[in-house]
Design a protein around this nucleic acid. Sequence first.
RNA 1: GCUGGUGUGGUGGAAUCGGCAGACACCCAGGACUUAAAAUCCUGUGCGGGCAUUAACCCGCGUGCGGGUUCAAGUCCCGCCACCAGCACCA
Length: 810
Amino acid sequence: MAYDFTAAEKKWQEHWERSGAFRTEDGSARPKFYCLAQFPYPSGAGLHMGHVEIYTYADIIARFKLHQGFEVLHPMGFDAFGLPTENHAIKEGLHPAIITERNCANFRRQLKDMGFSYDWSREVTTSDPAYYRWTQWIWKRLYEKGLAYKAEVPVNWCDTCRIVAANEEVDAEGLHERCGKPTRARRRSQWMFRITAYAEQLLKGLEELDWPESSKKAQRDWIGRSEGATVFFGLAEHEGRIEVYTTRPDTLFGATYMVLAPEHPLVGRITVPGERAAVKAYVERAAGRSEFERGELNKEKTGVATGAYAINPVNGERIPVWVADYVLMSYGTGAIMAVPAHDERDFEFARVHKLPVIEVVRPEGAAPSTLEQAHTGEGVMVNSRHGDLDLDGLRQREAVAKTIAWLEAKGLGQRKVNYRLRDWVFARQRYWGEPFPIYYLENGAAALLDDGDLPLELPEVESYQPTDNGESPLAPLENWIRFKDRQGRTGRRESDTMPNWAGSCWYYLRFMDPHNSREFATLERQRRWGRVDVYVGGTEHLNLHDLYSRFWQRALFDLGLVAEPEPFQKLLHQGMMLGPDGSKMSKSAGNVVNPDQILVDHGTDVLRLNLCFMGPVEANKPWSEEGLFAMRRFIGRVERLYAEHEAWEEGEGELAARIALHRTVKAVTADMERYRFNTAIARLMELLNELQRQVRRGRKALEAFAVMLSPFAPHFAEEMWERLGHGGGITRAPYPGFDESLCAEEEVEIAVQFNGKIRLRAKVPGGLGAAELQARMLELPEVREKLAGKPPLKVIAVPGRLVNIILGGG
RNA sequence: GCUGGUGUGGUGGAAUCGGCAGACACCCAGGACUUAAAAUCCUGUGCGGGCAUUAACCCGCGUGCGGGUUCAAGUCCCGCCACCAGCACCA
């Protein structure tokens, strides 16, 4: 009887649902395993191959852990707030909630057709008021802790669409994704998160995580910790001082000018009358340019002099103060001391604007130099002596320490650690997001909604289009904006909404306790499920979602609201599914592979096997049509193995089969633990080849094979399991164990090399030590003949592998 | 520019520690079964040569390129090249 995948998939999916096969028990005594794949944004296009890939990997891990006897938490939900839905709603004239429901239903159907082992009773949707009630609640806690604040920051304004573009809608060149026209910076007061307050913790916390080293490094670099000093420069003709941050206080004697960012508050005050027009023009031009434009490479460094002078604290020199946009207001103090001799950017600027260059670090043994380029490397201090501070002759480390000590003693500066990480703009001028549970009283003070008034639901609106003045579509809704609070005061609600990262910052917590209407998740449940043991997802959100979640988790941990300081213990990154031509799947390239169609033509098990067999989880893999047929053949061959009842016998079968079985179990188990699915399948194929050679096949071997295959081809494995006489339910059948003594080779082939070249092979019993192996090989007639009575110069014997005989001469 | 990753047969990819390169598949070729085809099964399959007769066998070369260390290098070291990804004036 041939295997009918369509019928089998339907049959077993119904069986799993009916029997509650994947219902997770919070109170079970089994050890826990939390397996999570990044939940999808339910777009109108439905599941694409990338989704299928990531959810397949997670499902294989979850099912493997079920076989190993874990209580597995493997939930699924939808990250449903966001712009595409809103844009779609505008186009179709339907409410975003309706579009969302439609898209979720479609995703849910597709995911169910794939037979994934989710506990669907835990499904959550971030745009559901019962969910975002808690997103708002958590935001309140973070606000109360002082981590949320309002500040004036730029938004991306598109003049063409007359709309605020979210950062996700703007590409690297600052072009609006929808119209392809440039966006510009427009300043606006909006909500922020003080993620920088957690910079050090987020950095240190990485140490305890089991993430790929490259991912840890990406976050480390993003946080960008640097050590240096703040230094105060007095002003020659003005009150006050300029504070700068530098990582090179040792080069203070080389500072020949200073630069303020165009937005720096001192610019207006210190600019001399003669330079005001030029400075004003420069600052205005900079203000209209987005960060993208300013960051453009290979452009000449621009700037204007303010006409004011600062005093270098180490030697009292008067140095000019400039304004230039290569200094960013958002990093450090927004002002720098420029040391052109030892900083490439300052050097370039100094050359363009004819500013002096003073060498203070000289490479060891080098002659004094007029410097054709900045020397940023090591060296010995020169030209660095004045008054009671003498750095000459010191190496960099000592010079830094000595300078900082000197500055601190004089009150002219101090040691300082700085981070590249910026505070997080947590606001959108759009409709389809969580409203902020905050409002403003007539006196301007902000007030929080009571917890009891949550969720603050989105109102119905006529138009989802943001307004021309850059406000959200909620802003014109006076009926909603204006309200009387519990104390009878008139308040105006915040009209911005939260960005679509909000709901995903904590969804992994909600899965632990999804129906709780009193808490977002009890500590008891959190202790039960702990951290996500393996989190499957792409690298593209590493410095966004993955970092944001860590920040929320740590902040909530400090508030005693969560049980763990870190959310994701292990990260598993899947590679990209490429089109059959090896390039990125895209509609324009016409190489998109539709998973729905493959399900119809080949079934989900074959699709899963093909995805896994194509290559390692982390690698980008071109889609293989041929592979699909290969996996069908594989399934067909296995099916025939289980059809030939007359070849079965009780037990594990012949010795050769037993040895093959135990070796396979050992190897496949190791592969599964390391997520090496492609080689695990290859080993199952090898075992299949061996079993096919056997005249009599042990039932035990067939059972073990079915269980090992089950994570990859669950429907098919259930079918074979049933043929073996079991009732339904391979999903929790124990994973096979192995006997180490059967895994050892009893006979091995040894390669015999002369001078490193293989000249013959010989079989010897396994387990021979180096000395005995060597002795045996030298006895071989072929070897004696080659040696012709002369003793070898040297012999290297590697047990189980080879013997290398080194002959003298040529 | 900086950082990280990748580079292995006609193709996808294997190869814990430096120890028989190419597991497992795909493709292709030949064969069996068949009236025939499909399906299935079997055999072969890195390149070049000894060897224009098959088989067995033998020799040389071979993991992006060029050097090096080592008895032994896909694996380690130095210098390049190509592609991919992330960051991109962070003082």
